[in-house]
Design a protein around this nucleic acid. Structure first.
Lengths: 191, 191
DNA sequence: GTCTTAAAGTGACCATGGTCAATTTATATG
DNA sequence: CATATAAATTGACCATGGTCACTTTAAGAC
């Protein structure tokens, strides 16, 4: 028999998330400690884990939410007419995704979902990303020899590659923007 | 004044690595516990951390070594004449990199080095990978409108994308090989 | 051989994420 | 209202990676 009783639960969950957001605003994602979250939320540690399977899932939730906000903006934009347009549109999203090494790691770890039942917030945004990119590319003036879906997957792959390179000292200094532009020009307008 | 004294150190280090390899052979990478490593190596925990900055660095070393072995094989191969050849050559490496979710995560985390001084084994293999790919692509019968280096970066990016998708339930079932082939055909032989 | 000293090794201890049996809270029912 | 019970919460406890002040070892000088 179903018991409603959602209000208390929802309040607790909201307090936990608010506490987490507060800590992140103050000291960044990496510095977040569960002890500190429950302290500020005024709950016991066990309560946290009754609401989130583990620390990563809280991060998934929060980071996924931020990404979703960027996608809302992206979705409202008109389809890019040039590779430069496309790169400019992606820049804010990429900036957030690389704001901390830790954030980028969490995103990579949760960009795929091992099972359909456990698609998290970040994995969902990647699905959404491909939809948005696909829709854009369906009537953008780029290559026509491969379907928009495949083009979109390539854009995702190069976006990640460009972000990964940002954290890497092996590659000589070249701005993120220039690098991504070179990738996407080669991918979307070959020949 | 330099003290040689390398023999004892080298032996201890070898015992630690041997113990780690043993555990990995028995139960896989993810199951490795430092406690178990030092128990089998017959050293104290502190000794482990005198040899490796942290657990990840041990993994970097071991996984990097494995990848290097694959690259030795790759390097000896003649340049691929077709995309199928290329994919076939990459398959063993990709299989290893995706043998465990944990292994793939470590590889992603250490594929870039934040600073030149701390280029680890895995980061080095990525550098080497691009060289090998670059050399291959320099005289392969693929597109000629972009330099081999850029082509090589794209191959890396799509290789990672194809591996990431393997761990993701969002994408309908398609074999790793078919997916990578589609990516690389679109990348290397457009139009 | 003995002494000095830098290098190597030790293990008690800490930090932090995560578990679970027990307890409290609140809702539906008679 | 009293009671039964499902849901929510608690906090002592555990697992595991990592630290550091101290001890031991052995290379080289005499």
């Amino acid at each position: 028999m179903a018991r409603a009783q959602q209000k208390r639960t929802l309040e607790t969950r909201a307090r936990l998330i608010a506490a987490a957001e507060e800590i992140i605003a103050e000291s960044g994602f990496e510095a977040l400690r569960i002890e500190e979250v429950v302290l500020r939320a005024g709950t016991a540690k066990g309560t946290f884990f009754a609401h989130f399977k583990d620390k990563d899932r809280l991060m998934d939730q929060i980071i996924g939410g931020r990404i979703d906000a960027f996608l809302d903006t992206l979705e409202a934009l008109p389809p890019p007419r040039t590779v430069e347009d496309l790169v400019a549109a992606l820049l804010p999203l990429a900036n957030f995704m690389t704001c901390e090494r830790y954030v980028f790691d969490v995103i990579l770890r949760y960009s795929g979902a091992a099972a359909v039942e456990e698609i998290g917030a970040i994995a969902a945004t990647f699905g959404r990303q491909e939809e948005v990119f696909g829709r854009w590319l369906a009537d953008a003036p780029f290559r026509r020899d491969i379907p928009p879906d495949l083009q979109a997957e390539g854009v995702s792959a190069f976006l990640i590659q460009a972000m990964a390179v940002q954290f890497c000292a092996l590659h000589e200094a070249q701005s993120f923007e220039d690098r991504l532009t070179a990738y996407l020009r080669a991918w979307l307008t070959p020949g």
